[in-house]
């Protein structure tokens, strides 16, 4: 969208930029935080069930393996997301202005 078009629409550029900044910054940060806490929860669940098994509580081995696999896959997904984020950050930093 060109600056003229924005002016024609009767919206000041300042407002648009602050709006974009405001919404995208908080929601993106919350998103990453949310992912992190979910992955962390799964890791804690897995280590909790390993502990229960080691303590001889009534836990099935396959339930422990299930918790571990869930934690592993979610961590792998988080790593992939992180790789993509770093990649796009570096891409932006390389940009010639």
């Amino acid at each position: 969208m060109s600056a003229d078009a924005v002016k024609a629409a009767g919206i000041s550029q300042d407002r648009i930029s602050t709006q974009l900044k405001g919404t995208s910054e908080t929601s993106f940060r919350d998103l990453v935080k949310n992912y992190l806490s979910q992955v962390n929860d799964l890791q804690l669940k897995a280590s909790g069930s390993i502990e229960d098994l080691a303590l001889g509580k009534n836990v099935e081995i396959h339930q422990v393996m299930l918790a571990m696999e869930e934690a592993d896959i979610s961590l792998q997904l988080l790593l992939q997301i992180r790789n993509k984020l770093v990649e796009s950050y570096q891409e932006v930093m390389r940009m010639q202005i």
Binding site: E60, H62, Q63, L66, E69, E70, I73
Partner: peptide, 13 residues
Amino acid sequence: LFSSFAVSAGGMD
């Protein structure tokens, strides 16, 4: 994905 894991684990139970 995790619900299909849970189904398999239920079968094992």
